[in-house]
Amino acid sequence: NQASVVANQLIPINTALTLVMMRSEVVTPVGIPAEDIPRLVGMQVNRAVPLGTTLMPDMVKGYA
C-alpha cells in the first residue's frame, strides 16, 4: 500500500510546509504520495490542516 502525507501537527492556513510538519502513513482515502514530501517543502497550505489529517492535492497551493 502506498503511504500518503499526513499532518504531524496543526498546520495553520497559509503556512509554508517544513519536513517536521509532515509524516508518511498508509491511510484511506489516499492523499498526496509520501514520495512528494521533498517537493512539498516550502509550499503553502490554503486551509488549516488539523493534526493527523491526510494532505490532499487541493490543500496545497501550486501542488495540483
Results as ranks from 00 to 15, higher is better:
Arg23Ser: 08
Gly42Cys: 08
Tyr63Val: 03
Thr18Ser: 10
Val49Glu: 01
Leu55Ser: 00
Pro12Gly: 09
Pro29His: 11
Asn1Pro: 15
Ala64Met: 14
Asn8Gly: 13
Tyr63Gln: 03
Met43Asn: 15
Gly42Tyr: 10
Arg47Phe: 09
Ile37Pro: 01
Leu51Asp: 10
Glu25Val: 03
Leu19Cys: 08
Met43Phe: 09
Asn1Tyr: 14
Leu17Cys: 02
Ala48Val: 08
Met22Lys: 00
Thr28Ser: 07
Leu55Pro: 00
Met56His: 14
Thr18Gln: 03
Asn8His: 07
Thr54Lys: 06
Asn1Ser: 15
Asn8Ser: 14
Pro38Ile: 06
Val26Tyr: 11
Asn1His: 06
Val6Ile: 13
Lys61Tyr: 10
Val26Cys: 14
Thr28Gly: 06
Val6Thr: 14
Asp58His: 12
Ser24Trp: 13
Thr53Arg: 12
Arg39Val: 07
Val27Tyr: 07
Pro38Leu: 14
Thr53Ile: 13
Ser4Lys: 02
Val41Glu: 04
Pro57Ala: 14
Gly62His: 10
Met21His: 05
Thr28Ala: 08
Gly52His: 15
Glu25Gln: 07
Pro29Gly: 12
Ala48Gln: 09
Arg39Thr: 04
Arg39Gln: 06
Ile11Phe: 02
Met21Cys: 02
Pro50Thr: 15
Leu10Ser: 04
Asp36Gln: 09
Val26Arg: 02
Leu10Phe: 09
Lys61Gly: 04
Val20Pro: 04
Tyr63Ile: 05
Val60Ser: 01
Thr28Met: 05
Asn1Ile: 15
Arg23Ala: 04
Leu17Ala: 01
Pro12Ala: 10
Met56Asn: 11
Gln44Cys: 02
Thr53Trp: 14
Pro57Trp: 07
Leu40Lys: 00
Ile11Gly: 00
Ile32Thr: 03
Met56Val: 10
Ala48Cys: 11
Met59Gln: 05
Arg39Leu: 08
Tyr63His: 03
Ile32Cys: 13
Ala7Leu: 11
Asp36Glu: 09
Asn1Met: 15
Thr15Ser: 05
Gln44Glu: 06
Ala3Gln: 05
Gln2Asn: 15
Gly31Asn: 01
Asn46Trp: 09
Met22Cys: 06
Pro38Trp: 14
Leu17Ser: 00
Val45Asp: 00
Asn46Leu: 13
Leu17Met: 08
Met56Gly: 08
Ser4Ile: 02
Asn14Leu: 07
Pro12Ser: 05
Thr18Cys: 08
Ala7Gln: 01
Arg23Asn: 04
Arg23His: 05
Pro57Thr: 14
Gly42His: 06
Thr28Asp: 15
Glu25Cys: 04
Leu51Ile: 08
Ala3Tyr: 09
Gln44Asp: 06
Arg47Gly: 05
Asp36Tyr: 07
Leu40Pro: 00
Val20Met: 15
Gly31Thr: 02
Ile13Tyr: 06
Met59Phe: 15
Gly42Lys: 03
Gln2Cys: 14
Arg23Trp: 07
Leu19Asn: 03
Leu40Ile: 11
Val5Gly: 04
Val27Arg: 06
Val45Trp: 00
Leu55Thr: 01
Ala64Asn: 07
Asn46Pro: 05
Ser24Met: 11
Asn14Ser: 10
Asn14Tyr: 08
Val6Arg: 04
Met22Asp: 00
Arg39Asp: 02
Thr28His: 06
Pro38Asp: 11
Pro12Lys: 03
Met56Asp: 10
Leu19Tyr: 14
Leu55Lys: 01
Ala7Ile: 11
Glu35Ile: 14
Ser24Thr: 08
Ile37Lys: 04
Thr28Glu: 15
Val60Pro: 01
Leu19Glu: 02
Leu17Phe: 12
Leu19Val: 06
Asn8Phe: 15
Gln44Val: 08
Met43Cys: 07
Val5Trp: 01
Val49Tyr: 01
Leu19Ile: 04
Gly52Ile: 01
Gly52Arg: 10
Ile13Thr: 11
Pro50Met: 10
Gln44Asn: 06
Ser24Arg: 07
Ile32Val: 14
Pro50Phe: 13
Thr53Tyr: 13
Thr15Phe: 07
Arg47Ile: 06
Val30Gly: 04
Ile13Val: 06
Gly31Ser: 03
Val49Asp: 01
Glu35Asp: 05
Pro29Lys: 06
Val45Pro: 04
Ile11Asn: 00
Ala48Leu: 07
Leu55Gly: 00
Arg23Cys: 03
Ala7Phe: 01
Gly52Val: 01
Val49Phe: 02
Pro57Phe: 06
Ile37Asp: 00
Met43Ser: 04
Val6Ala: 05
Val30Tyr: 13
Pro33Gly: 09
Gly31Cys: 02
Thr53Met: 14
Ile37Glu: 06
Met21Ile: 03
Leu10Tyr: 06
Asn8Leu: 12
Gly42Gln: 06
Asn8Lys: 15
Met56Trp: 13
Ala34Ser: 12
Leu17Gly: 00
Pro38Gln: 13
Leu51Gln: 15
Asp36Leu: 10
Pro50Ser: 11
Ser4Val: 15
Met43Glu: 04
Val6Met: 15
Tyr63Cys: 02
Leu19Ser: 06
Val27Cys: 03
Leu51Pro: 09
Val6Glu: 03
Val60Ala: 02
Val26Asp: 14
Met43Gly: 06
Val27Phe: 03
Met59Arg: 04
Val60His: 01
Asp58Tyr: 10
Asn1Glu: 15
Met56Glu: 07
Val60Leu: 06
Met43Leu: 13
Val41Asp: 03
Lys61Ala: 06
Arg23Met: 02
Val49Arg: 04
Leu40Ser: 01
Thr15Trp: 11
Ile37Thr: 12
Tyr63Ser: 03
Gln2Gly: 15
Thr28Pro: 03
Val5Asp: 00
